[in-house]
């Protein structure tokens, strides 16, 4: 296990290096300047600023310098926030996004699992059709549409929850629900299909032949086996939440990392773009690692043994 994780961590750094290099090159290919109103400055003034931030050096030099700093954990300084340290900036904004993301993922998967279980156990009944409809809506309607809808119903019409901004935990409810629609739909579909298949397998028949009641069959025997494929898609679902949060945070005006990311792209804030990209990458890679380890916990057939054993 330790050997496996070490190997994975080494791979993780390798991927991060590639992602950093790739993003760096892409950014340098972008036209435009990080200066808010470059045209109002004289050529000399611009040169002074560029010189100060090292933007006049040849790109390979900038690349080596940036990667060197990155290796030391220094993400550089932001252009748009008056030289604020990027790490501090991200960490400050991260809190909001992390709350939203975690709530959406946990809430979404749990509700999805419950809906899927109900649909599978009450196959071809109103319950099944109801949960199928919720799942189809969740998959086909983008989260930002839900966001606006939720805002209208709960904030404008019923006036029970804040319409936007961050005023404590209450503000996180609507955006979390909007973000959770995707995970709900995916989890419900996966669990339903998988439960139906597992419930018709031989070992469930044997469990019945042992005298197990429906509760034991559903939860002791079938559930764990039905969870396995869901675990696989949790990684991509988490990635979907990241991209979803970019828009949803905008709609709810939540000062999270998503909103910050969008702003930094429109203002060519290189250091922040790089920093956020790197942060998102680390987050995703760690999630995928956790998913792989969870696999082994749930399915003994995929227990991770040291390397090629």
């Amino acid at each position: 296990m330790a050997k496996y994780i070490t190997k994975r961590v080494i791979y993780m750094f390798l991927s991060l290096f590639l992602i950093a290099s790739f993003t760096f090159v892409l950014m340098k290919l972008l036209p435009g300047s990080p200066l808010a109103s470059a045209s109002k400055l004289s050529v000399e003034q611009r040169e002074v600023v560029y010189e100060k931030y090292g933007l006049n050096d040849p790109i390979p030099v900038q690349y080596v310098r940036y990667m060197g700093n990155l290796a030391k954990g220094d993400f550089g300084v932001s252009f748009q926030y008056k030289n604020a340290d990027v790490t501090t900036l991200i960490v400050k904004k991260l809190k909001y996004s992390a709350i939203l993301g975690a709530q959406a993922l946990i809430f979404g998967t749990l509700i999805g699992i419950i809906l899927g279980m109900i649909a599978a156990l009450k196959q071809n009944t109103v319950w099944d059709y109801g949960s199928t409809i919720i799942a189809i809506l969740g998959i086909s309607i983008p989260s930002f549409v839900f966001a606006v809808l939720l805002q209208y119903v709960f904030a404008v019409w019923l006036e029970v929850l804040p319409v936007g901004l961050w005023e404590g935990w209450k503000s996180s409810i609507l955006p979390s629900i909007a973000l959770a629609m995707g995970p709900i739909a995916i989890a419900a579909r996966f669990i339903r299909t998988e439960m139906i298949e597992v419930l018709s397998s031989d070992y469930i028949l044997l469990a019945k032949a042992k005298g197990a009641n429906w509760f034991e069959i559903a939860f002791k025997h079938a559930f764990r086996n039905a969870l396995i494929p869901l675990i696989t898609v949790l990684g991509p679902v988490a990635a979907g939440l990241l991209t979803g949060s970019l828009v949803v945070e905008q709609i709810f005006a939540i000062p999270g990392i998503g909103q910050q990311f969008v702003k930094s792209i429109s203002s060519n804030d290189f250091a922040v773009i790089m920093g956020t990209t790197m942060f998102f990458s680390v987050f995703l890679i760690v999630i995928i690692l956790i998913v792989d380890i969870l696999y082994g916990v749930i399915d003994p057939r995929i227990r991770l043994s040291g390397g090629s054993k």
Partner: peptide, 12 residues
Amino acid sequence: FQDPMTSLNPTM
């Protein structure tokens, strides 16, 4: 049952 390969629960 007929097929012992599938009649035991793989995760138990």
